[in-house]
Structures are given as structure tokens and as C-alpha cells.
Amino acid sequence: MRELVYYVAVSLDGFIAGPNGEYDAFAVEGDHMTAINERYSDTVATHVAEAFGVEADGRMFDTVLMGWNTYAVGLPYGITSPYRHLRQIVFSREHAAAAERVEGVEVTDRNPGEYVRELKAEEGSSIWLCGGGALAAALADEIDRLVIKRYPVLFGAGVPLFGPRAYAPQAFEAVEARAFESGVTFGEYARRG
């Protein structure tokens, strides 16, 4: 069965974006980028991978899930299909029936948990939960693995790693931890049990 992996950048104070969706405080230069390009190359946007010769081959992920706000980050720049090398699924109750349809991007208003259980039963690589925090909260029970890239920056406010959800502790165990000279740390956690 396929895994759902929440692979995401986060500030020291637990935010994946600033109050207005800002994410530019997350450094895109430094020794941590080698690790991203080697192991997690599927998470590099297609146009960036092509420009820098990064091979995104579907070895780690073949599907990406996004909430509308995460997907919409690229729209002002004309980026309507950010991960063309992956199956792209965007969850939105407001935009599912709208004209924002783009080839290679599926916008759905389906229940995220039900849909992810169906995706997990399919053949393929792991499923990448790209963001945002509200979608992560809706899928908390389905997340099999967390890969947290913690950046040495404080936002003070913004989009939390997980949006509000009913209190239900969920145990994960540490699988790997790496620290880089850039100050970025990677922590990988697998669901316990």
C-alpha cells in the first residue's frame, strides 16, 4: 500500500507560511539543497527542475496533493501546473467546479480522507502532501510519514503546520535526523503502530 508523506518546510515556531502566504524566508541556497535534489527531487517544481538539471523521476513520489492556497501561489506568475511530472490533485470546495481547470491538474471537492484512502490502494510511488495546514489537519489520520524541513527562522504568525483539528494525539517515531551547515534540519517520522 502506498504511503501519504507530509513533506514540508516549517519555521522554528511551527509555520509553513507567513500570515499572507509568504514562504520566501525559507532559504533555497545552502548545503541542504543537495539533500533535497538527491532524495526528494520529485518535490522540485517542474520548471525549476528543468532549469537546474534536477531529475524528478517519480522514484519517491508520483502524486502531489495541495490545498487551493498552496496551489494558487504560482498563479500570479503564470504557473498553473507546478508539478507536471506528478499527478496533481488540488482540494477545494470553492474552486472545484470553476473554470480554473488546467490540463494535468485535478481540482476536487471530494472528502480528502476518503480520496486519499482510494489513492493509497492504487499501485504507484508514495503520495506527497505538499500543503497547506488545513489540508494536513483534514488528513492527519491518513499521514504515514512526516518529513519536516525546519528552517532557522521565526515567522511569529501565519499558516500552521497543522490547522485546527479535534484533539487526538497521534504517535510517530523518529526515523532519521540530519542537520546542515545552513542551519536547516530534516526530521523524518513514521506513524507508530
Rank of each mutant, 00 (worst) to 15 (best):
L154D: 00
A171M: 14
E142V: 06
R192N: 07
M33H: 04
V107A: 05
L135M: 08
R84I: 07
H85L: 03
G21I: 07
V54D: 04
M60W: 09
G30N: 04
G21V: 06
I89M: 05
A138P: 03
R150T: 15
P112F: 05
A49E: 00
E122T: 13
F15L: 10
A177H: 13
A96E: 05
D109E: 13
F15Q: 01
Y83K: 01
E106W: 11
Y167V: 14
D109H: 08
A27Y: 06
R150P: 03
E114H: 10
N20W: 05
L135W: 02
A171Q: 12
G58L: 06
A179I: 10
N69G: 08
H95D: 02
L4K: 06
E3K: 15
R192I: 10
G74V: 09
R165L: 07
E176D: 13
E123F: 11
G187H: 13
E22G: 08
F186G: 03
I16E: 01
F186R: 08
F172R: 01
I36V: 15
V54C: 07
H32E: 03
A179N: 10
E55D: 13
D42C: 06
R93V: 08
A134R: 13
N37H: 15
G18V: 03
Y7S: 11
E94M: 11
A134P: 01
D141I: 05
F52D: 13
D13A: 07
R178C: 10
T63K: 04
V5I: 12
V10S: 11
D24E: 14
A56S: 15
S41H: 09
A174V: 15
F180L: 06
E118S: 11
F15C: 02
P76R: 09
F52G: 12
V105Y: 04
